[in-house]
Design a protein around this nucleic acid. Structure first.
Lengths: 344, 344
DNA sequence: TTGTATGCGTTATCAC
DNA sequence: GTGATAACGCATACAA
């Protein structure tokens, strides 16, 4: 069995409680006994038992991560490792560990969270997504358990600390950009409409067109999964329209890659025939052919800020609700060009 | 405060220990009291406290994950989310959760592991990499703490349960394949030589050439990071040789992507001028231009088997050492072609 | 079949 | 300043 506080106490000739105080660096312990105890700790190779500490403290120093339902898909998108890296760094700075549960079905995921929370495994939870009707979010909220959300909450947005981009404005900007290049027939390829981010981006797109006095055409708005397969499907639908678009706003780089490849197969040139702006600016966008003009949403920061603000909330429950908007920035590459009228 | 076993006991008019036994579904409790207790649990919304259970049991149902030193780079490679998915599934099947710690330096990582282990936070650990002199591995081994490794242990390979591919044979096969296409000047672009996988693959490459009676040329062997930037560097070096290679074995798809792009910039055609075989067969390889011929190493399975075998080892400490070899398979796409003598 | 008592390794509240 | 002692919530050996 491992060496405990008692063993140390015995060796140092003090009471266990004194050892505990030394660990906490309690100020009313004399330097002399501190030294004595520390020596004993080193000699025995003592390491505090977190589980016992957690039980006594009612706190674990662990953050729980909730992935969206279709975890296998989420995993495939480069978005995931990047937020994770941000979360990981934010957590590490404050000595927190990260814990994940996954499940096949929404039901399993929900149960996993309940176990995490009620089981006292974690001190707080970060939701790596925001969807429209979210059981997990409701549960956390009703229970008053500390959590933050990456993305804009569908409901109770004023009551929930969240880290988000201004997706509405970002997409409006991206669409404006295409408009300024002279494009009029601009399509929108978005993800699952149950995800709030999709909704926000769609709204930004629509706003841009409306401001420009361009009529919205239903056939130009497509929703698929945030994967390249999704991009492929979307392009097929779009290009067989009587009046195919000359530009596309694609809500995710991975989808955009699918778009690019499908277009290439169809021998349609990007950017000569079709211009594309996409989102996320993951590494991929730099390496595609052509490199994608993509809106950088600072994924790392999304994660980093989420971890930081969650920890703050845990350590100070009276910490006010926050909305943290991570800045975005469009990085221009080579997937867009001035509209050229094909008829001339 | 949360509802505990005592509350349930009170409501059901039994002793706490009885409730505990009902939770464990102990066979010597009558069905009648089981019903009664379960009803009380539902009524109160009872959920067992994992921390308390862990303390009593000396087991946490959590697996610790150790990422390689340069976590930010590791995160960027699609390898990571895929193993993670495998690990996650393997763990979930047996109701285990996953926990990660990260750190900037090797020192921080090491400390994180020590905390995980001595702190009793996890029941076992999986090493997601295998490097040449690994402090963490040594520590785990000396402590007799349950762990498994993804990749071949550099030392003590007979004493450590590990999940690996036959990288030696896989790379020999890949090189043979290029040889059969008539190539003679074949380069090897590998990762960090401190990683065992790199060593294994290099050996397989060399073996293939030696068997074919082809002299090894030092300039044809390059080591860079497992990132596309690494591929870029490698190509630059290789293509300015007096006798540049006509084919390349690239130890990672992401690097291969860098290779592809750099070659494209240099207006060197793949596969017309240069053939490429790479490794991992991540989604990317399908979507690059041209799609890459890549050796599928079943990354998901690597993770899945690792989780399974670790859990087995945890639950039965007498479980024998295992070496699990996950099969590989080269999937041919369009990055290779028959060697054509440029002089004719 | 069920209840009682004790331990798991800490922290924290009292005393002294 | 330091030492007993009681939690924290559960599991289990031993009684009954």
């Amino acid at each position: 069995m491992a060496v405990t506080i008692k063993d140390v106490a015995k060796l140092a000739n003090v009471a266990p409680s004194t050892v505990s105080r030394v660990i906490a660096n309690n100020s009313r312990i004399s330097e002399k006994t501190k030294q004595k105890v520390r020596e004993a700790m080193n000699q025995l190779g003592y390491h505090p038992n977190f589980i016992a500490r957690s039980l006594a403290n009612q706190s674990t120093q662990v953050l729980g991560l909730v992935l969206p339902g279709s975890a296998d898909k989420f995993f495939q998108n480069p978005f995931f490792p990047t937020v994770l890296r941000g979360l990981s760094e934010g957590a590490h700075e404050k000595q927190y560990a990260l814990q994940m549960t996954t499940g096949q079905s929404d039901e399993e995921i929900y149960d996993g969270i309940v176990q995490m929370v009620q089981g006292g495994r974690v001190d707080g939870v970060v939701l790596l997504y925001s969807k429209v009707e979210d059981k997990v979010m409701m549960y956390l909220r009703e229970r008053g358990f500390p959590f933050v959300m990456i993305g804009k909450p569908f409901k109770y947005s004023e009551e929930i600390t969240h880290v988000d981009n201004d997706n509405y404005r970002a997409t409006k900007g991206a669409t404006d950009y295409l408009l300024n290049l002279g494009h009029q027939r601009i399509a929108f390829i978005g993800g699952d409409l149950n995800l709030v981010v999709t909704v926000e981006r769609l709204l930004g797109y629509e706003k841009s067109l409306r401001d420009a006095g361009i009529e919205l055409v239903n056939e130009y708005v497509i929703h698929e999964e945030f994967l390249q397969e999704g991009g492929k499907e979307a392009v097929k639908e779009l290009m067989q329209l009587a009046q195919p678009p000359t530009a596309m706003v694609v809500a995710d780089d991975l989808m955009a890659l699918g778009v690019l490849n499908t277009l290439h197969e169809m021998e349609i040139s990007v950017p000569d025939d079709i211009s594309i702006v996409s989102f996320n600016n993951v590494l991929l966008s730099e390496m595609s052919r052509p490199p994608l003009t993509s809106v950088d949403i600072n994924i790392f920061d999304l994660g980093y800020q989420a971890a930081k603000s969650l920890i703050q909330k845990i350590e100070d429950p009276k910490d006010p609700i926050k909305r943290i908007i991570v800045p975005h920035e469009m990085v221009e590459r080579f997937s867009c060009s001035q509209y050229k009228d094909q008829d001339h």
